[in-house]
Design a protein around this nucleic acid. Structure first.
Lengths: 223, 223
DNA sequence: CGTCACACGTGAGGC
DNA sequence: TGCCTCACGTGTGAC
């Protein structure tokens, strides 16, 4: 179709110059209006997208000077990171596992003063005397408890302790190793005692939907 | 600059016709190559951006059928939500406050199925019967407990529950409001009872260093 | 000069 | 058909 050269776009605003002769008139102007609508609506679309990108720029820590692709990459890593954290704090870390576990480890962060801090966790079936046993065990150890946290779900319980060594020094690493192993031993005893007396092994895990959750007691039938 | 009309774009592929006279030949070819480079580079840029958008599509819960703008909106709310959660769980959430507090709120994130989820927290002095009272109170309420978490520090305790409505619907918002207020009422009762019987107000807050921490019992002398 | 990132207008294809 | 979204090539301005 040799309509080429028939249209020249002026640099003036929306001026349409027709150099050919035949079939002039209405259809052309209609096309133009359609095109105009189209380009305006496309502009709106771009605006919408870019507004969202601007908003996102405000949400990521790193400041202005990033192009679109970098921004999106940042957002991606941000989301991944946050999701991981959320998953950790709501699944991995705080929701009791379905198998028994004792973990003791040194925390790399500072403890404030010189002494290092530790994190111990144990996961087992819940039983009423668990907490008093734990307290007794921890009182007997040369540790300084900083934080205790327990979560209970579906008859299982997970307990996390953060503590520092009581500070009666000798070599730091030696002390840390001894402390870790004694804490681990104490907690393991408790967990093993628990599983020895475990007869109420009902609902060790739950089918992920509509599970009935009892708070601090797996046997009471509740409401 | 009257270079206008000097260039006419043919509808043929990449044919550039110069209607003026001088300087024909090589420079035109160069221009063409430059244009080609340009468009290829633009294509790469678009690819980078779109790849990131694809990745993001995989990270948001809601599935495929969203256009770019909606996707970005989703990402924005997702990021905001996760940031809020992260802030909550890393700051205020886990360390018991030094003043009593009851908070119940609707969580904005999805609960998976239709029903919304809620977060209730209360902070008060620890006392031995606290947990059984809490359990009784929660059993009496039409809630479906998803997660329970308690932390204890310096004779104070903070308890956080995440739950969904039991789903016996009516209007969602109405139900949510009623649920929130009844949960708040129940928890407030417990906290107030606690502070009423509070005589052992020793060490309500601690000087941040070398505090003595008791696990689940602020009054017993331990060991 | 090249190169980069952005906005624009336009064609294609889906409802 | 009209309106939408998307990809493309190009114009432009900043280093």
């Amino acid at each position: 179709m040799p309509i080429a050269q028939s249209l020249v776009l002026d640099n003036e605003k929306e001026k349409l110059v027709k150099t050919s002769e035949k079939k002039s008139g209405i259809s052309e102007v209609k096309k133009m209006m359609a095109l105009k609508k189209h380009s305006e609506s496309e502009k709106r679309r771009r605006e919408r997208i870019n507004d969202h990108l601007i908003t996102l720029r405000g949400l990521v820590p790193s400041n202005e000077k990033m192009d679109k692709a970098m921004l999106l990459a940042e957002v991606i890593s941000q989301v991944k990171q946050l999701q991981k954290n959320a998953a950790q704090s709501s699944e991995g870390l705080n929701i009791p596992l379905e198998f028994d576990e004792v973990k003791v480890e040194k925390l790399e962060g500072y403890a404030g003063n010189g002494s290092s801090s530790f994190r111990a966790s144990l996961c087992c079936d819940y039983r009423p005397d668990l907490f008093s046993e734990l307290r007794r065990a921890l009182d007997d150890l040369p540790v300084h408890l900083v934080k205790a946290e327990t979560s209970t779900l579906g008859g299982r319980t997970k307990n996390v302790f953060v503590f520092t060594s009581s500070g009666e020094g000798k070599n730091e690493n030696t002390e840390a190793r001894e402390l870790i192993s004694s804490v681990r031993g104490a907690l393991s005893n408790i967990v093993n005692k628990a599983s020895a007396s475990a007869k109420h092994t009902q609902e060790l895990y739950f089918p992920r939907k509509r599970q009935r959750v009892s708070y601090f007691d797996s046997s009471s039938s509740s409401s």
